[in-house]
C-alpha cells in the first residue's frame, strides 16, 4: 500500500514578502506511522503542513504522496489521499449544519446520493457524533467541533491524516477522548502540536523543526528526554517526564 507514504525532499519555501519559512526539509513517512511535528512558533510547522495536501506547491524540492509527486496536475489525487484537519474548527466547518459539512467532500467527489449518505453516517459514527448531524456548527462545544471537523475529513476516506494542533483549546476530558479516538486510527498520521504529553501518548516518532530546518528526527522517547535538544528547539520536557513538583525528585513522592 504505497499510497500511504509521504516523502519530503529538500523542501524550500519563501513567503511573498521574503520571509523564508522552509529551508530544505527532508523526511520519509511510511504506512501506518503516527508522527509528531514539533517546534517553536514560526519554526515552519504550519507551512510544512500546507505543502502536504497541496495548499502550497513546493518552490524548490519535492513532496511525494504515495506514488505521485505533488504538482498542480496531481492535486485532485493528493487532496483525496491526504485529509487535513485545520487548527480552528470554525474555519473547517463552514456549512450550515453538521451533516452538510461532512457531506461536502463526498459530494465534491461526485459520489451518488446513497454513497454520500453512507459515508457521512459512517464518518460521524467513527468520531461518535451521529447525534449531532442536524446541529449547526455554532451550537457545538469545542470538543464536538473538533470531532465533527475530523469526521468531515474522514468522509473523504483519506489514507493519510494531517492535523494542526488538534488538542488546542480542548478541555482535559475532550482532549483525552480525542487521544483515544486517534489511537484507534490505522491511517498514516502527522500531527503538528505543542502538546508534548499527547505526543508521548500517540506518536512513536517525532520530528523537531527549527527555523525551517529539521533539527532532529527520531523515536519520541529519546527526543523528549534530550533536554539540550528540546531547549534549543524552544521546547520543554513533557510534564510527565519532569520531576515531582513537590520534591523535585525523579519519582513520585511517597
Amino acid at each position: 500500500m504505497s499510497h500511504h507514504i509521504i516523502e519530503v525532499k529538500d523542501l524550500q519555501y519563501t513567503y511573498p514578502d521574503g520571509t523564508p519559512a522552509l529551508r530544505g526539509v527532508s523526511f520519509l513517512l511510511t504506512h501506518g506511522e503516527t508522527v509528531a511535528l514539533v517546534g517553536a512558533n514560526g519554526a515552519g510547522k504550519s507551512t510544512l503542513l500546507l505543502h502536504l495536501n497541496g495548499c502550497l506547491i513546493p518552490q524548490a524540492g519535492m513532496v511525494r504522496i504515495g506514488d505521485f509527486p505533488l504538482t498542480r496536475k496531481t492535486l485532485p489525487h493528493v487532496r483525496r489521499t491526504v485529509g487535513m484537519v485545520f487548527q480552528d474548527p470554525d474555519d473547517q466547518l463552514f456549512m450550515p449544519v453538521v451533516y452538510d459539512d461532512v457531506a461536502f467532500g463526498p459530494l465534491n467527489l461526485g459520489l451518488p446520493q446513497e454513497d454520500v449518505e453512507e459515508r457521512v453516517m459512517n464518518a460521524l459514527s467513527i468520531v461518535g457524533a451521529t447525534h449531532l448531524k442536524d446541529r449547526p456548527p455554532y451550537r457545538l462545544s469545542g470538543g464536538e467541533k473538533r470531532s465533527v471537523a475530523i469526521a468531515s475529513v474522514l468522509s473523504m476516506a483519506p489514507s493519510i491524516l494531517v492535523m494542526d494542533e488538534p488538542t488546542a483549546s480542548l478541555d482535559p476530558k475532550a482532549r483525552r477522548q480525542l487521544i483515544h479516538l486517534l489511537k484507534t486510527f490505522t491511517h498514516t498520521i502527522i500531527i503538528a502540536t505543542h502538546d508534548l504529553d499527547m505526543v508521548l501518548d500517540l506518536c512513536a516518532r517525532t520530528i523537531v523543526l527549527k527555523e525551517g530546518q529539521v533539527l532532529a528526527d527520531g523515536p519520541t522517547w529519546e527526543i523528549l528526554q534530550n533536554e539540550e535538544l528540546l531547549d534549543s528547539g524552544h521546547l520543554e520536557k513533557p510534564l510527565r517526564l519532569q520531576g515531582c513538583p513537590r520534591c523535585g525528585g525523579e519519582r513520585e513522592c511517597p
Binding site: 487532496r79 485529509g83 463552514f94 456549512m95 467532500g105 465534491n108
Partner: peptide, 21 residues
C-alpha cells in the same frame, strides 16, 4: 479567516460550487 476557510474548502475538493443536498 476567509483565506483559511477557502483553503479548508479547497482541501475537500471545492471547485467554486457548493452542493447542498
Amino acid at each position: 479567516r476567509a483565506k483559511r476557510v477557502h483553503l479548508a474548502m479547497r482541501c475537500r475538493g471545492f471547485d467554486g460550487e457548493i452542493r447542498v443536498s
